[in-house]
Write a protein that binds this DNA or RNA. Sequence first.
DNA 1: CTGCCGCATTGATGTAGGATAAGAAATGCA
DNA 2: TGCATTTCTTATCCTACATCAATGCGGCAG
Lengths: 196, 196
Amino acid sequence: MEQYKHFLQEKAALTPEEIESLTSSLQSKTFRKGEFLLHAGEVCAYAFFVEKGLLRSFTIDETGKEHIIQFGPENWFVTDRSSAYFSEPSDFSIEAIEDTTVVLIDAAFISRASAAYPHFMRFNEKALQNHIRQLQKRINLLLSATAEKRYLDFIRLYPDLTLRVPQWMIASYLGITPESLSRVRKELAKNNFKPH
Amino acid sequence: MEQYKHFLQEKAALTPEEIESLTSSLQSKTFRKGEFLLHAGEVCAYAFFVEKGLLRSFTIDETGKEHIIQFGPENWFVTDRSSAYFSEPSDFSIEAIEDTTVVLIDAAFISRASAAYPHFMRFNEKALQNHIRQLQKRINLLLSATAEKRYLDFIRLYPDLTLRVPQWMIASYLGITPESLSRVRKELAKNNFKPH
DNA sequence: CTGCCGCATTGATGTAGGATAAGAAATGCA
DNA sequence: TGCATTTCTTATCCTACATCAATGCGGCAG
């Protein structure tokens, strides 16, 4: 819970007292590596705030291939907003890539907190807007950039993930095969590119 | 303004009186085919609600290629939310594909309306959530579907646009070249596919 | 009517990345 | 520790789509 409290203090500009009173009702839960927090087809009841560990959300297409939507390291939210908001079955699955502790945030919490604290409401809306910005950016990349550029963008944005996530998952996030990613990396290495 | 009022009544469940009082402060404006409502680099001050006509929003990459983000026919909103919300210069341009009449909706209007009418606030949030759902869906398509599937999805979703929009713009939306789209269509025609 | 321009089509050729297969390296686990 | 499984790499071939270039053709300004 500590990370989440800290996060609220930073981003939502709430006082420690407000935070205590708000979060007293929240549960946290730990999942082992490989466990699922959400299976495709279920309604996503929570937003998961990652205290420690690493999640991924992904879809599976008709041909059985996985496509990673998002990684969730510490201090990130992972959820399927559409499913949670509209109470529809989710297309996503959410899985722990490492042993992961999350705070469970449900819709009732959000509305209670928004009603009680205008700061929280604004914080929440800002998170939505940020999410849109991210999605938009990703669409742009998928429309315009080569595999190599997308990979470079990825390691620029998530340098630590490059080390924590197996490459086939990064490939899946980028929309290419692991073999292609391997080639891209080889090419980059040849031109003496140093990721770290 | 009529379309917008109708839209509010349908989607936001406001009474005609509430709608009148709300919209009295709104301006509408008409743009000629080819005119720009927003140039990349400017801050996007409005959400444009399309009363009549057709808009497109698009980016231009480093190599000078356009990538269409969204089409906006009647009853759609076109804007760059990130730019509008964070008051940052936009990456998008917005252009009228046909002579187009829009209602100009600025941030002040949204907050006034949200404060005055809880229904409006919920309507607005729902629009945001819907937007996220759309973006997510598009990312999924770009990650997993071939040009043909993406095109089929497009005409299923926007059958009327297929007739109003030049094909090179559809190609740009799909992330392929006009030549490729032409070949996809040829292939579909051969297998006796009838769009309408 | 005519010449031009933007758009769509078609063909020839190039290329990024996919599919497949196999081996090497890393990791987990008994 | 050693065996098995997963992950990463490498090589070969293949395919979807891009690029380049030429042709056609409908609108429309003069």
